[in-house]
Amino acid sequence: MPLPLSTRKILAETGALSRFTGKFFTTGIKPRYEWNELIRQCFVIGYRSLPLVALTGFIMGLVLTMQLRPSLVDYGVESQLPAMVAIAIVREIGPVITALIFAGKIGSSIGAELGSMKVTEQIDAMEVSGTNPFKFLVVTRVLSATLMLPILVILSDVISLYGSYLGVNIRSTTSFNLFFSQVIDNLSYSDVIPAFIKSYFFGFAVGIIGCFKGYHSNKGTEGVGQSANSAVVVASIMIFILDLIAVQITDLLGIN
């Protein structure tokens, strides 16, 4: 019995994405290296995402603290609030929420930009001018996304914890030093390192899926919108799948 059409489409797309990822590695390691474009993309992808990541991180820390507080008060462990928020943010919420925000902003922007370049023949123009468009457009964007997301996650975590500190001080008074010494005392390398490593994978997923969707855009301007949209949807799903895999790996390795 033949597989349903939707299943075949998903399998075909997965195969195409795998080939695209393979091409990224085989093309990316060969000279010539596009350093100038890589630095420009790091600025575009990293620096310009900072305000959004900072704002959402701040609100996330503040809201999480305010939501957790009543439950902890009920159990009489209000003093554990900084430790609990810190672990939740650093291990899980910080990387995942930042990656989702990143997918929304950068994944869609890469998908739309490359999609638009594809339908207006700009990618072909690059190719006929003797420049490898895959190397210039795809490799630089994927590397930038991979390198920038972990940095954004660290910044988001710090800003979230600052938001949490303000949240704690809405109903009680805790000094800045006391709050952050409690945070640092309760965090271990096993909280920080796996979260940092998985951020690289999240960044890679957002970059490669955004580029894949944009690079294979068709159907004119309608296709550009579809590329941007599906880049965000697929990247977001991939972030959750990678997170699940990361949790399983850390669990198997006993890093808890």
Partner: peptide
């Protein structure tokens, strides 16, 4: 390709 120029119908300016 460096010796062959191509003018696209859509201009294809970056």
């Amino acid at each position: 390709r460096i010796r062959v120029g191509f003018l696209f119908q859509s201009n294809a300016l970056y």
